[in-house]
Simulated assay, not measured.
Amino acid sequence: SSVCIRTDPIDRNALPRWITERAKEKNGQTLTPEAANLIAERTEGNLLATSQEIQKLALLVNKPEIDVSDVLDAVSDVSRFDQESLFLAMLEGDAGQVSKIIDSLQGENVQIPSFLWMLTDVVRNLLLLNRGFAVRTFGLSEAHRSALNRASRRANPKLLELMFHRLSDVDRMSKGLFVESSDGDAWQELKAVCLMLSLKRK
């Protein structure tokens, strides 16, 4: 026998109230209306993502009442998760996710130099693997290692070299330096470089 449980979707206008009740039930924390609405906007009605945000706040904010500033401060603490998601989306060729994550990082005012060196390492590892060399994978997740190997087999070495050089341009632009043949927008250039691997296959 089986049991069928009906779960109706939650209307966007009712989501902040659901978030407030969920946080109180799970964490014993009270959310201001502004904080609950900000979480609703960030998760776009995805209840799984919303529950994860509530769990993150419980871990990162040790106080009984959470306001907008607490939610915004927590962004910097979870930005490493967003960056790893960017690397995996790029390696897996998920162009839509790459674009969305970069827009999210930009919207959260994450500084490009804070993670650009890690992205450069990803491309360097792809080049080495593509040429048959071993790379250091200490500290990388199994998903990351697998994605690296798959991407290295499908990527053209000339494309990887171009990506590596263009990331140098991104670094210069993010520091306010002039780069020829560019409009000076470091975020757009960063997105273009990441999408190169996502959109072009052998």
Results as ranks from 00 to 15, higher is better:
A89T: 08
S85K: 08
D11Q: 12
P157S: 00
L128P: 06
W187L: 01
L160G: 01
E44N: 15
K56L: 12
P16G: 01
V170L: 03
M90V: 15
R6I: 05
S181V: 09
D169N: 14
R145L: 08
R153F: 04
D82W: 04
S104D: 05
N62Q: 15
S114F: 00
R172H: 12
R131I: 03
S141Q: 06
R153L: 08
T120K: 15
N156F: 02
R12D: 11
I102E: 07
L105Q: 09
Q188W: 10
P33D: 03
D70A: 14
K56T: 11
V61K: 00
S76M: 13
E180Q: 11
S152Y: 02
L47M: 13
L91K: 02
D77L: 15
V75K: 00
W187Y: 09
S104N: 10
R42V: 13
D94N: 11
N37Y: 04
I10G: 06
R17N: 03
L47Q: 14
R150V: 13
L127M: 15
I66F: 00
T32E: 08
V122R: 05
K202Q: 12
L140N: 06
K202D: 14
A155Y: 00
H165T: 15
L177A: 08
H165R: 14
A35E: 08
A49C: 01
D185N: 15
S152E: 05
V193D: 07
E108S: 14
L15M: 11
A36E: 00
N62A: 15
R201D: 14
L119T: 08
R42M: 15
T50E: 04
L116D: 07
P33G: 02
Q52V: 14
L160W: 00
D70S: 12
E108A: 14
I102L: 13
I112R: 06
A192S: 14
L48P: 03
F133D: 06
N130M: 05
L59F: 14
E21G: 00
L15H: 03
P16E: 07
G96S: 05
S1D: 03
K158W: 11
L60F: 14
K100A: 13
A155M: 06
L140Y: 12
A151P: 02
N27R: 12
D185P: 04
L167V: 05
I19N: 00
I39G: 01
T50C: 05
N125V: 02
Q111Y: 03
R172T: 13
L195T: 06
P9C: 08
R12V: 10
K56Y: 14
S1P: 01
D169F: 06
M196K: 07
G139A: 04
I5C: 15
P64S: 15
G45E: 06
T30I: 11
A23W: 02
T7E: 15
P64M: 09
T50S: 02
S114A: 01
E180W: 01
S181I: 07
S114W: 00
D70L: 10
N109A: 15
V179S: 07
D11E: 12
N156T: 07
V122Y: 01
